[in-house]
Write a protein that binds this DNA or RNA. Sequence first.
DNA 1: GATGAATGAGGATTCATTCAT
DNA 2: AATGAATGAATCCTCATTCAT
Lengths: 207, 207, 207, 207
Amino acid sequence: MVRRSVSSTAEGTEAFRGTDKRERILRAAVDVFAANGYFNSKVSEVAKAAGVADGTIYLYFKQGKEQLLTTIFQEHTRSYLESLERELGNVDRAEERIRIAVRHHLETLGRDRNLAIVAQVELRHSLKFMSLLSQQEVADYLNTIRKIIERGQADGAFKRTLHPQLVAKSVFGILDEMVTSWILSEKAYDLGAQSDQISELILTGLL
Amino acid sequence: MVRRSVSSTAEGTEAFRGTDKRERILRAAVDVFAANGYFNSKVSEVAKAAGVADGTIYLYFKQGKEQLLTTIFQEHTRSYLESLERELGNVDRAEERIRIAVRHHLETLGRDRNLAIVAQVELRHSLKFMSLLSQQEVADYLNTIRKIIERGQADGAFKRTLHPQLVAKSVFGILDEMVTSWILSEKAYDLGAQSDQISELILTGLL
Amino acid sequence: MVRRSVSSTAEGTEAFRGTDKRERILRAAVDVFAANGYFNSKVSEVAKAAGVADGTIYLYFKQGKEQLLTTIFQEHTRSYLESLERELGNVDRAEERIRIAVRHHLETLGRDRNLAIVAQVELRHSLKFMSLLSQQEVADYLNTIRKIIERGQADGAFKRTLHPQLVAKSVFGILDEMVTSWILSEKAYDLGAQSDQISELILTGLL
Amino acid sequence: MVRRSVSSTAEGTEAFRGTDKRERILRAAVDVFAANGYFNSKVSEVAKAAGVADGTIYLYFKQGKEQLLTTIFQEHTRSYLESLERELGNVDRAEERIRIAVRHHLETLGRDRNLAIVAQVELRHSLKFMSLLSQQEVADYLNTIRKIIERGQADGAFKRTLHPQLVAKSVFGILDEMVTSWILSEKAYDLGAQSDQISELILTGLL
DNA sequence: GATGAATGAGGATTCATTCAT
DNA sequence: AATGAATGAATCCTCATTCAT
């Protein structure tokens, strides 16, 4: 986002643009898909929003419209998981690790509503899409959560009566629903603010 | 093509047939949508699967394809909620009521995979659809769960530190994810069998 | 081509149209392809020329534009061969049979310039097309000519030093070129009028 | 990308390279057009096959794709006619001249299958192309053959009852068909080997 | 009520061509 | 001269919906 150019800006700008174009298209796709839904969005709308010609999209995304959607999801999940791992870094307490995972999810998606819409809603388009994505990206995410649980069970912090994979799915399900609900809500509340309550529920239950 | 009707049963039969046809169309829509996804399904495929002419669908569903989807969801949610209320009937213990809600959700959807697919996946087609549906049907469901929580908090069975609406969403989120995960899984396991673990997590948490 | 309608023309016309639609589309395709060339013709032009909607073409020709071209050729060749066989009927003299084949070819195509254009020019679009067509239709035609030659050689009318298949191809090549040349000519001469000279060349050669 | 040139040969090499590049593009075009057909070939494919950038083609052929096709035909016909004239050289006997023309046609095209494909098939793309080409190149070829006939009739070698132009077209048609048939054949026979039979047919006919 | 032939708007994608470097 | 990233016009085909029978 920071641009520094000293000499003949021409070259610098061009080079930057070239690199940038792919990002601009992806960002435009997020916004357009979020606004109209994937199936109701036209490639030409994405192109227009990105400030490129229709055909240019196919230079960067050979598979066209569908590839835009999957790329958005893949790249977002990848960067999300990286930042999550960073945050978990050298935190050892199992309870704290859960709290971090919860907060990170809600804050990250709470920061970019359009991205959240695409990730929550537009991706769930058909069994085909979901299968594709679950195979890798969602599986990666679930694994990360599952490992937190397993470690917590191993060091005696968490009870051992619950199946880690099932807990991981539950945590994901809760977070997913909180985001979806936030997206669909007409009121613009702070998503991240719910982190503590959610963590408390997960950790101590209703009783 | 030749129809002869003599007595008053004729009308009755006709009316019945009419009803029958409507159900056949809806059932066909569930199956076709589950197989290909809503956007990739053709009205003519639904018609064929239902054994009626394309145009006939518009006699029963004026708004066409979209109405098929919303009708499926509405009628399913309505009947689901009715049966849930019946099950909750005269059960008083808050914990038991949660267990019933969880089990009912997983068993009901676990019984009809195609319906589950449509409900979980195909309905999430765009913000537009989800908004429409959340407004009423999902809201009704969440309300039912929320009331269980509230009553549990009122009679001292559940802790009062958690916001009932937020807990309701969490429960819904967990159940939703369990179903989605089951749909996408290649292994055909018993969805209802997870009820106890899920209930335990919700009631007592991880710690 | 002759239409007789007595009573309420509405019904008659409609019925006629229904049956007719396929033919109208094919005829329109011949004319449009002849005017602009196959690759430069738009499906919508054919539809417009046929007086039907674009989509209607796909009701009658599932494979679209390409099927129009192949159908034109197939049906024309079929009907051409039938009429040729009829003409050869009970003519026995080999020389006379050759004369009939030559005259029939030139007169038939000389009668419908647009059809001739499509048959001569537009069909020869790519190896793919030509291979497809040669396999069956052209092969059938060549066989018919070859049999004339073989019978002539068998009854001693024709010399036996020439390979019948090669002669058949030569005859076809000559006729083909006469038609092509006629199509490309700016002068509108009578194609059939060349029959005698052509036959003489084939029968007696240059010497 | 770095070019170093020291002596005067540099320019020469450059000039040669320029020429070389033009030939490479034409040859690539013949091969690509033969493989996929003119309309289905992409300029970028030709560029790739020639080992040049897309834009480079427009440096040598201002009119682009279409000019590639016409240039191939023009240059081939020109060089073909030159070599034919050379072969006819000081041969005087009319019959022998016919034999040479036939043999030359079949052997020349029989030597370069891809060129033959483009000449026979790809050129016949639309009336527009054919008209353009017939005007000059085909006309030149027909004239050459016609002159052979006329001279043969003048010196009494050939009968005078046949119109020379019509005979010329016939000869061209036969040769054209022999080549087309050879191209489409799955068996790889020797095209030139048919020369004698063809000449015999032309000279002495069937009787 | 049923039918299904006909409609025609709508859009993803391709690819010849340009032009700044 | 050479490049190749970018352009955007052009078109085939699909399919939801209608309506005459």
